[in-house]
Simulated assay, not measured.
Amino acid sequence: MPTKELSAAEMHLWNIVENNPKKIAKMSIVKLSQYAHVSTATIVRTMQKMGYSGYTSYREALKLKNNFSSTFNVLNEADDKIRSVITKNEIEMNNTLHNLNYSTIEDSISMTKQAKIVYIFARGLSESIADEIMVKLQLTGKYCEFHSDPNIIKTIANKIKPDSLVIFITLNGETEELVSAAKILNKRDIPILTFTTNPSGKILQFSTLVFMGYKSKTNYFPEYEVRSRLPLQIMTRIFSDAYSVRSGFFKNI
């Protein structure tokens, strides 16, 4: 039973998803929006009224309830070792999407809109992800800077103005210069948006909003710190694409 009464549009949507479980289980929220001729906001509201945190949690519950297979055709052709590599990435992707919080996405968009300047700090392999976010935000007209040099990061942290937003991209949330900068910014009441995969990372205590991804324990390069950045890539892409939509830069959804 719904936790709240459904509107006509919401009831229309709910009837569609209930009557087409196999088809719905494979659809993204955008595809469902097009299929049912309702907005993505209507989908989210409907799922929340029906007791789910959002569309992703509903779809995961649907798969479990009906025991739908989420495997890919390539898994049928791969040997055990390659299959484990593919499955690892699938698990990281699915669990990261499951961790997403709708209000965090909307709040991060609002903070970005309000900021006159957006600073992005990242180190190591996360730098390419930071560079991609910077380019995408700049394309929407937002003034944005990306810094990776540890000395510059610490210096700038003391000079950033309150009307700015700082985005940290850090896989483990423990990188010393990033944590130090976040601590400085926190004391100065500068809003911080963090993308990470470590729920125990030191940087979390200084962050205003956090996107928490899922990191697999498996590392195919054990002698080096080159763990998968897939969770960070998924979350930052969702953030930047959602910002583009909400800012009116992309109008085809």
Results as ranks from 00 to 15, higher is better:
223 E>F: 14
192 I>V: 07
98 H>C: 04
11 M>A: 11
135 V>C: 03
237 R>E: 12
51 G>A: 02
145 E>N: 08
156 I>H: 03
115 A>I: 03
1 M>T: 15
30 V>D: 08
152 I>R: 14
205 Q>T: 01
198 N>P: 03
54 G>A: 01
156 I>S: 12
97 L>G: 10
32 L>H: 14
126 S>K: 12
69 S>G: 05
147 H>K: 02
224 Y>F: 05
170 T>K: 12
131 D>M: 12
180 S>Y: 13
214 Y>C: 07
21 P>K: 05
167 I>G: 10
120 I>A: 12
223 E>K: 15
220 Y>W: 05
193 L>G: 03
179 V>R: 06
169 I>H: 13
242 A>R: 00
180 S>I: 05
243 Y>C: 02
109 I>P: 02
149 D>W: 13
5 E>A: 10
118 V>Y: 08
46 T>N: 15
184 I>V: 07
74 V>Q: 09
129 I>W: 02
59 R>I: 08
161 K>I: 03
20 N>C: 00
35 Y>R: 11
244 S>N: 07
40 T>A: 07
222 P>D: 03
87 T>K: 15
165 L>T: 06
98 H>M: 05
168 F>N: 09
111 M>G: 01
16 I>S: 11
216 S>F: 00
118 V>A: 13
151 N>W: 00
183 K>Q: 14
59 R>G: 01
26 K>F: 06
237 R>G: 14
120 I>H: 07
167 I>S: 13
246 R>Q: 12
115 A>G: 07
221 F>V: 08
10 E>P: 00
118 V>H: 11
151 N>G: 14
213 G>R: 01
247 S>W: 04
132 E>A: 15
30 V>L: 14
71 T>G: 11
175 T>E: 09
200 S>P: 02
59 R>D: 02
216 S>N: 04
174 E>D: 11
111 M>Q: 13
119 Y>V: 01
220 Y>K: 04
232 L>G: 02
188 R>Q: 15
32 L>N: 13
28 S>N: 14
204 L>S: 08
91 I>R: 13
84 S>L: 04
231 P>Q: 04
73 N>R: 10
227 R>Q: 13
183 K>N: 14
96 T>W: 06
241 D>L: 07
140 T>D: 06
51 G>F: 06
241 D>N: 15
174 E>K: 12
72 F>I: 11
87 T>Q: 09
177 E>F: 14
90 E>F: 09
137 L>D: 00
202 K>H: 08
83 R>Q: 05
148 S>T: 09
160 I>E: 07
129 I>T: 13
160 I>C: 06
124 G>Y: 12
147 H>Q: 03
93 M>K: 12
185 L>G: 01
161 K>N: 07
